[in-house]
Design a binder for these strands. Structure first.
Lengths: 165, 165
DNA sequence: CTCAGTGCAAACCTTTTGCAATAGT
DNA sequence: ACTATTGCAAAAGGTTTGCACTGAG
């Protein structure tokens, strides 16, 4: 079992987190769980595992990548797809797209919307706190569009990968 | 044959465009052809048809959409995929991604890089002349990244679609 | 108890690859 | 002629769907 995998097959207990053997009142995860619950979604061990994986990773991951982080047998890949979709719908995660079209998800850090710089060779990811949401909203509204959303991803070759090549 | 389809199976002639029955010294297409040629790519009737389709459409299209614009039998879908990839490599088209991960391509209007606002219901597209390329480059370089590129797409529901719903 | 969520299998859609035939240059 | 490009067929990759079963509220 890889060190960063998450094992949720532990005995039950009272509170939300101790049952997973995690000493974690991680505000990100807590907030996420609350949001899920408020949106009427059910809290399952599979979903908790996925959220946990997203917190640990701290970077956008595809459904397959999230699935790979889970302790083998935690849940089916299909469930990851379905849950991530739900998570996005209720604003718990933020959707992004890789250059090759793969969808990736990362936890919404509270209210703050952000973007990423990704190495297209090794996948290294850096957070980019730069966003033109307001300007884009303005343009969108000027055309009468509503329910605006945007995708912005920055790609490049990181110094390490460039060294090797 | 739909009115906006492009038929290239016409008799040969001397110049680049008259052979297609098109009275077109369209600078966009001309520039594109020159770029292709300069990059060492070959000018085939399939590629000319694709470029033409892109000019007529004036909006980003997926490989399948480009293929659908071509007169039936002009070329195989696989060829469209391969050519668009080449076009992008030499800077003749610009790559974008839809919310669902589909790759889309649009002609690079000369040197100007731009983005799009797309209705996620009907596909209507508006050009967005707003870009933070410079700021993004700066961030990328600050992390030591090179060969930077970015994807930015704005999505929403257009007024017409909203009316119906 | 009820319906949302899950697993499994299979379908689907988009994109990529292999190889022999074709056609620019 | 030389080699990029094409078509066809097949595989690959990522995502979605159908259905019966399970489990959270």
């Amino acid at each position: 079992m890889a060190i960063d995998q998450v094992d949720y097959d532990l005995p039950n207990s009272k509170n939300l987190w101790s049952m997973y053997g995690l000493n974690m009142s991680n505000s990100l995860v807590d907030k996420s769980l609350v949001k899920l619950s408020q949106a009427g979604l059910r809290l399952t061990k599979q979903r908790r595992a996925m959220l946990e994986a997203l917190v640990i990773a701290e970077k956008p991951m595809s459904a397959e990548e999230v699935h790979a982080k889970l302790y083998s047998g935690t849940c089916d890949l299909v469930t990851v797809y379905r849950s991530l979709e739900q998570f996005e719908r209720v604003g718990v995660v933020q959707l992004g797209v890789r250059e090759n079209g793969t969808k990736v998800y990362c936890l919404s850090h509270g209210l703050d919307h952000h973007h990423h710089l990704t190495c297209r060779i090794c996948g290294r990811t850096e957070r980019v706190d730069l966003c033109m949401a307001e300007e884009l909203e303005k343009v969108g509204r000027s055309y009468g569009f509503t329910e605006l959303s945007h995708v912005m991803e920055l790609f490049g070759a990181c110094p390490e990968c460039k060294k090797e090549a």
